[in-house]
């Protein structure tokens, strides 16, 4: 089966003043459909750069990036925007929701862009469904500042999933959350992979967060250090039950 993500000899070089920083040094890897890949490494290891290139927010200095078999590393801005809109869902550490905007309007944001012209009623319907799937249907009209961090991250996940993307890219999604809500978010990711077969790439610097993935790729100094299947995978669903019941 053709991989969802296939990168070949990917390099990224930054110029900071007179210094040349090699963020990525000829990376090659494949991610197949339905995988939950944790990318781990210390800061400066190049994992964030990889994430930005995978998310089409940045372009590689050299090398190729095939997304669903199509080379997206040299597309025009309009085309790359469309790729982001239709094929990629982002979940960020800082949630990146629009402030002073309701959860519903945040979730339906991707539908306002892209090729499809969707009616307001249809937008709302699909956004509501997405919010329901992350358990926030009742809070659709809450503004982002009225939601807890975990809830905000779930709104972000609902937004990322709205256009049924090929991959879900999560950049330190639990970095701003406490341990219980972190587990809740990881539970959603695992459920998405398990129930809907969504391909997930998770970037983190914490090993115990990476442990929720089915495969762990570790980075160091712009190189892949190791790429192994995760034998001792954590299961968020089970861990949640061990937490004392707290009213959400």
């Amino acid at each position: 089966m053709e991989p969802v993500i296939s990168v070949r000899n990917l390099t990224k070089t930054y110029h900071v003043g007179e210094h040349q920083v090699n963020a990525l040094r000829s990376i090659s890897m494949d991610v197949h459909k339905g995988e939950f890949v944790s990318v781990i490494g210390p800061s400066g290891s190049g994992k964030s750069t990889l994430m930005h290139i995978l998310g089409c927010l940045d372009q590689p200095t050299s090398g190729q990036y095939f997304l669903d078999g199509r080379d997206v590393s040299r597309l025009s801005d309009d085309d790359i925007s469309l790729v982001r809109n239709e094929q990629i869902g982002f979940v960020f550490q800082g949630f990146n929701l629009l402030t002073r905007t309701s959860a519903l309007e945040n979730v339906e944001l991707p539908l306002l862009y892209g090729k499809s012209n969707i009616s307001a009623a249809e937008r709302k319907k699909r956004a509501m469904a997405a919010l329901d799937s992350v358990g926030l249907g009742a809070r659709y009209d809450h503004h982002t500042n009225q939601l807890s961090g975990g809830q905000q991250q779930r709104v972000a996940i609902a937004r990322a999933l709205l256009n049924n993307p090929s991959i879900l890219l999560a950049d330190e999604p639990t970095g701003n959350l406490d341990s219980k809500t972190s587990i809740e978010v990881m539970d959603i990711f695992q459920a998405l992979q398990r129930d809907r077969g969504i391909t997930i790439v998770l970037i983190t610097h914490e090993m115990d967060v990476a442990a929720y993935g089915s495969r762990i790729v570790s980075f160091k100094d712009g190189n892949i250090l190791s790429d192994v299947s995760n034998e001792s995978r954590r299961h968020a669903g089970g861990e949640l039950q061990e937490f004392p019941a707290v009213v959400n």
Partner: peptide, 10 residues
């Protein structure tokens, strides 16, 4: 940035 990340074109 948020809008661009969800697919807004220039």
């Amino acid at each position: 940035g948020i809008r661009r990340s969800v697919g807004a074109r220039e």
